[in-house]
Design a protein around this nucleic acid. Structure first.
Lengths: 143, 143
DNA sequence: GTTTTTCCCTACTAATTATATAGAATATCT
DNA sequence: AGATATTCTATATAATTAGTAGGGAAAAAC
């Protein structure tokens, strides 16, 4: 059970965008090379985030990506759910009909609780908070 | 990001064992057929649980599996970690050396917190508790 | 000694994940 | 207008993981 690199890359990329919020668009190429991520993969990762309205893009030279909302208004649960599809660790949580044992099975309640725990943890972390901490780390590293 | 069926099967099987705790050994064949699980797969799933001392086995006819400890003393975190290896959703949580960006990357702290949230949720659920609820569900279903 | 079960090792298949390739569309700059 | 840089889209491929299946050895019960 691993969080996909897709989700991890998405978070890292959005933190970069949050750091540059209000400035000019950030090119995926820069993010990709700065973080050792395949550019082509990153393009695919960003796609659903654009569709869901978390980032905006500008084509052409001097183009790139910007956050579509203030970093305070984007939390990690939204980001990860957008690229991963769902944060349920077990199918039956979102699709009760996927298992005909739903009504006689205690474990579904466990998985439901687990999803909620993950939600509580992640929805509480905003890009703003992360960017701030990341900024500190970067400046520390320079010394 | 899905919990492996391995983990789900393990939990379901152990709940069955908890329901029969103190009685005679339960055959995997019965669990497998009762829950539509491949017997051969279930054997593999149970293997690490025996090694780690959560279940004991008896070979031969009238053999089978029993819990090695009272159901109160086995929690879901232990079970899942035993069959899944780890409940960290990201590698760098357990193996900082797996990523050379560890010290400049905020996201690791996020994944650490996430692991803890999952731990808090799952370690708090014992097989005894689950078995009790499962028992209720079964008797309800019969009516 | 026959049967039934766990035990162990291995191989196979299917599904998912991650990356790469190729080029179209669009904006910028000179 | 033309050259360049970027996002956008679709597809292909490689790598990894997940899930299943098979065959038989070992041990216990009857």
């Amino acid at each position: 059970m691993q969080l996909s690199t897709k989700a991890r890359y998405a978070v890292r990329a959005l933190v970069e965008l949050a750091l540059k919020y209000g400035q000019e668009p950030v090119k995926l190429k820069d993010i990709a090379s700065g973080q050792d991520i395949s550019l082509k993969y990153l393009e695919q990762v960003m796609f659903p985030l654009r569709i869901s309205g978390y980032v905006k893009t500008h084509k052409g030279s001097r183009g790139g990506y910007v956050l579509a909302k203030p970093p305070e208004d984007i939390n990690l649960y939204d980001v990860i759910r957008t690229v991963e599809g769902s944060l349920s660790l077990v199918d039956c949580v979102d699709n009760p009909e996927s298992c005909d044992r739903v009504n006689q099975c205690v474990t579904r309640r466990v998985w439901l609780g687990l999803k909620e725990a993950i939600y509580n943890e992640l929805s509480n972390i905003s890009l703003a908070e992360l960017a701030e901490k990341q900024h500190l780390l970067y400046t520390e590293a320079e010394q």
